[in-house]
Design a protein around this nucleic acid. Structure first.
Length: 791
DNA sequence: TAATTCGCTAGACCGA
DNA sequence: TCGGTCTAGCGAA
């Protein structure tokens, strides 16, 4: 093979080889060719021992050990003599570990896989450039070949099973970066993208052919982990076929996790299940959509609509319906999956490079894993031995430890004008950096308190040397701030804009999750003392800024964690507030800094519903352009009916934009009358709630549980994690009795009193009450006849 | 099985 | 029937 430059699209090791550990790098070259580079690798791990000289001798005698030598590495803050053990093959590691444990040695890094170690040692990154001759990193840009596919399966009234003959694959669509857009099916359909074949088996062979000929580096699916790929593989088997999609001719490998969830790997290609990405993005709030099905997400993320056919209707459509529509739907599934994949890939390419993890791993990682792999890579660079994972009993003990979090100032309820919001830029990360907060500097014996930062709760952190975590964060933040500056000056159409934007976003995700990681019971670098100190400093600094603001003559009306809401006096301007911000920034330890978050002409802070005291985390602001920013109110909650949210937003608009409370009250009265008249359409009455555990494990049977139980009796499948939508109907005594899944409720069948008393009034009354109105004002003439109407 | 704590609110539940 | 307490869910940061 000629030496060349390219991009690493996947890395694995040859599972079939039981003699040697062979690392395989799959490289897409600058000229578009694909190469597999095979390199023998000797796996290694470390052993900590009281008496390394003795232990190393004993280890050398164990079978399967290739070599053992004493090396110097950092174990926490100390430079120590540790044993580096190299083994002949991966498969020996567990047995050798057991033996070493018996000798009293402690193993480290045995659970860090060989692919990553190989990449660390060569300074390589997945989706980064490589010179195939020297195996060293190079700067290059190569576009990987990307494909998406989707199956439609014939299933009537029940989940399809691959070994039931009638549950056949009736259609498959394929979309790729070379421009192909096809639907393969066995019926004649009037669409120019349809390829007609004779049998189900031929649909599968056609997919096999596409995989071989297009040879994609990245294969995108939407829920391919749990449906399309396992089903296709099993169905092929049922038909006596194979799907040799791996670049080594292997079939997709299905790995089952502890929850029954599966991951499907295709050797040499990166199988990216876009649904996994979507779930993660929804979890961190980057996607705001109640439902995560392909149609909803396609619209929420890209603002595009596509055809939706319910799973249950596919069989009917296939037998006697509109085949063209079914084909459109199937093709659009692949197109939507492909486009969503393209939207998120730049971000995940960067996460793969930061964490030095292949794309199939990164796209399935939790926030803690992203942080941890970033730290593991850095530990390797610094010659630090990676701490082991905690044992189950340690995890349980850690979960018992709690600590105090952020400070939230009690607001001054009511209307306010001319509000300036200042907030700390990346507060927790900058505290960690400026105070060298790290598990290895925390209360460490090697420094005195004079050479340490002492937190407000008394923990101290040695100033030197720079800890692993502050070091990582410093690098991440510096890079990110530099990128953001660069992006500001760039044209959004610049081809570099998107990858750079993705990179800063990837850095943000890792930086933001790092504090939480310190308090996460399963973390290798768990440090409760650190997390506790971070929040203590955060409380200290935010209170200090509030105090300084008051001393500068400003009125502080609210603040939460890292923000300060300043109300300008008559003789104060925005510039005064910004000057104050500059003054503060000169006094904060670097890189801590206050930022200007926004200026709002008016805002309302509410009182708590039952006690009447000021409510935290509930307010609405309006800016100069008339844009509302609603925080914490029912409007932003999915477990409130649309009708209540809509009315609340309108009321806020009348009050904040037009300053017309009377108009708001009249409007609410009209809506209440409509509700009582039964005029509200079904969709606006649905309340969405997540079922968080098995239904029989609920101690309190709330409306959502009651609705779910009733639905289950009617044959609906309910499982933890599902978001269900229910409506409070007319039939029943308690609210739970009246709750029914929306799909079983007829238009007009709702309990008007529930929606008035438990949805609309609670959503608007706290707002109106701040402005001097009470409940009676809403009820007068609100469609409810007064006694005089009858006389 | 996989970032944290703070805070609000609804509705069931329970005992007087 | 009332009022306090507990369970549950979701959002802010």
């Amino acid at each position: 093979m000629l030496p060349m430059r390219g991009v690493i699209v996947d890395v694995d090791h040859d599972l079939g080889n039981r003699e040697q550990t062979i690392i395989r790098l799959y490289v897409r070259g600058e000229d578009g060719s694909v190469h597999v580079i095979r390199k023998e690798y000797t796996p290694y791990f470390y052993v900590l021992s009281e008496n390394p000289e003795d232990t190393v001798q004993k280890i050398r005698e164990l079978s399967g050990v290739k070599s053992a030598e004493i090396v110097e590495r950092f174990v926490r803050w100390e430079k120590k003599r540790v044993i580096l053990v190299r083994v002949a093959h991966q498969k020996y590691i567990n047995r050798i570990r057991e033996k070493i444990k018996e000798m009293g040695g402690e193993c480290r890094e045995h659970d860090i896989n060989v692919e990553r170690k190989f990449l660390y040692e060569h300074g390589l990154e997945p989706l980064g450039g490589i010179d195939t001759e020297t195996l060293s990193p190079v700067e290059t840009r190569v576009e990987p070949v990307i494909a998406a596919f989707d199956l439609e399966v014939y299933a009537k009234d029940r989940m399809p099973e691959p070994d039931r003959p009638e549950n056949e694959i009736i259609m498959a669509s394929w979309v790729d970066s070379t421009g192909r857009r096809v639907v393969i099916t066995t019926k004649d359909i009037e669409r120019d993208y349809v390829v007609k074949v004779e049998t189900e088996a031929q649909i599968i062979s056609e997919l096999n052919r596409l995989m071989r000929e297009v040879d994609p580096d990245i294969v995108l699916t939407y829920n391919g982990d749990n449906f399309d790929l396992p089903y296709l593989r099993e169905r092929a088997r049922f038909l006596g076929m194979r799907i040799p999609w791996g670049r080594d001719g292997s079939e997709p490998r299905i790995r089952r996790g502890p929850t029954g969830n599966t991951t499907v790997d295709i050797a040499g290609r990166a199988h990216v299940d876009v649904f996994q990405i979507v779930q993660f993005m929804a979890g961190i709030g980057a996607i705001n959509s109640i439902h995560l099905d392909l149609e909803s997400v396609y619209e929420a993320v890209l603002g595009k609509k596509k055809v939706k056919i319910k799973h249950m209707d596919i069989a009917d459509q296939w037998r006697s319906g509109d085949l063209g529509l079914l084909a459109d739907y199937n093709l659009q599934d692949s197109i939507a999956c492909y486009e969503l994949g393209m939207e998120f890939l730049p971000l995940y390419v960067e996460l793969s490079r930061i964490t030095v993890s292949p794309l199939p791993n990164t796209t399935r990682m939790s926030a803690s894993q992203l942080v941890e792999w970033t730290l593991i890579r850095r530990a390797f660079k610094m010659g630090k031995v990676v701490p082991r994972k905690p044992r189950e009993e340690e995890v349980r003990a850690r979960m018992m430890e709690t600590y105090q979090g952020a400070f939230v100032k009690e607001p001054v309820p009511g209307l306010h004008e001319r509000i300036v919001v200042l907030d700390f830029r990346s507060l927790y990360p900058t505290i960690i950096i400026s105070h060298n907060v790290d598990p290895d500097t925390a209360n460490a014996p090697y420094c005195s308190r004079e050479n340490a930062y002492v937190s407000p709760v008394g923990h101290y952190f040695c100033k030197e040397p720079k800890g692993l975590i502050p070091g990582m964060l410093e690098e991440v933040l510096e890079l990110r701030f530099a990128l953001k500056d660069k992006l500001k000056k760039m044209d959004k159409d610049d081809p570099d804009y998107k990858p750079l934007y993705a990179k800063q976003k990837a850095l943000k995700i890792v930086a933001n999750a790092t504090y939480g990681y310190l308090g996460f019971a399963r973390a290798r670098w768990y440090c409760k003392v650190c997390a506790e100190a971070v929040t203590a400093w955060a409380r200290h600094y935010i209170k200090k800024v509030m105090k300084w603001a008051e001393e500068h003559g400003f009125t502080v009306i609210y603040g939460d964690t890292d923000s300060v809401f300043i109300k300008l006096g008559e003789d104060q301007t925005l510039e005064d507030a910004l000057a104050f911000m500059g003054w503060v920034n000169e006094r904060l330890p670097k890189p801590m800094a206050l930022d200007f978050d926004g200026y709002y002409v008016r805002g309302i802070f509410l009182s708590k519903r039952r006690s009447g005291k000021a409510a935290k985390k509930k307010y609405a602001l309006i800016d100069k352009k008339g844009r509302l920013k609603i925080t914490g109110l029912e409007y932003v909650r999915r477990d409130w009916a649309e009708i209540a949210k809509e009315v609340q937003a309108k009321v806020l608009e009348y009050v904040l934009k037009e300053g017309d409370v009377k108009k708001a009250v009249d409007y609410v009265k009209r809506v209440i009358a409509d509700v009582r008249a039964g005029k509200i359409p079904k969709e606006k009455l649905i309340i969405y709630t997540q079922i968080q555990k098995e239904l029989d494990r609920y101690a309190a049977r709330g409306p959502h549980v009651a609705a779910a139980l009733k639905a289950m009796k009617r044959g609906v499948h309910i499982e933890p994690g599902m978001i269900i939508g229910y409506i409070i109907t007319k039939r029943g005594s308690s609210i739970s009795d009246k709750a029914e899944l929306a799909q079983f409720v007829r238009e007009g069948d709702y309990d008007p009193e529930y929606y008035v008393e438990h949805q609309i009034i609670p959503a608007v009354l706290p707002i109106l009450e701040e402005l001097g109105y009470d409940e009676r004002a809403l009820k007068q003439d609100a469609g409810q006849r007064s006694i005089f109407d009858f006389t």
